[in-house]
Amino acid sequence: MADVERGNRPLSPHLQVYKWPLNMGMSILHRMTGVALGGVTALVAIWFLALAWSPEAFALVNGLMTSWLGWLVLLGGAASAWFHFANGLRHLVWDTGSSFGQRRVQRTAILGLLASAILTLVTIWVAASV
């Protein structure tokens, strides 16, 4: 290794000049949304605890959850859940050994993004319809 002529030989692609395949972003988002969902689900558990506890406790926790910051967190939670849901389905299909072709990976990535956007919009609509 050490004696190899370095000269003008091409370098391997560096992180900064590498064009990101869409699926790389999907993979990173799957991990980020998975971690985020743990946090939001814990908040929802506390909301249930307050609901079981007393009307006063519920007023406090529910007030925080339905403040503008609370709604923002919940919206992030819903979007995370639907992304992780759609992309998780891709993972489960891959786990059977299917759909690894480049074109299919690209196409199901776009499909997954579309599905999670639509499901998030439907969730907003359901939340707003009370």
């Binding site: 929802v44 529910n62 959850m65 339905t66 919940l74 819903a78 859940a81 849901f85 998780g88 389905l89 489960l92 969730t123 907003i124 359901v126 939340a127 319809s129 009370v130």
Partner: peptide, 18 residues
């Protein structure tokens, strides 16, 4: 969770804020 997530989220979204 593929089954449970939709069944959980929609009622939760519906009831949130009530």
């Amino acid at each position: 969770l593929v089954v449970l997530t939709p069944l959980f989220i929609f009622p939760l979204a519906y009831n949130m804020g009530d």
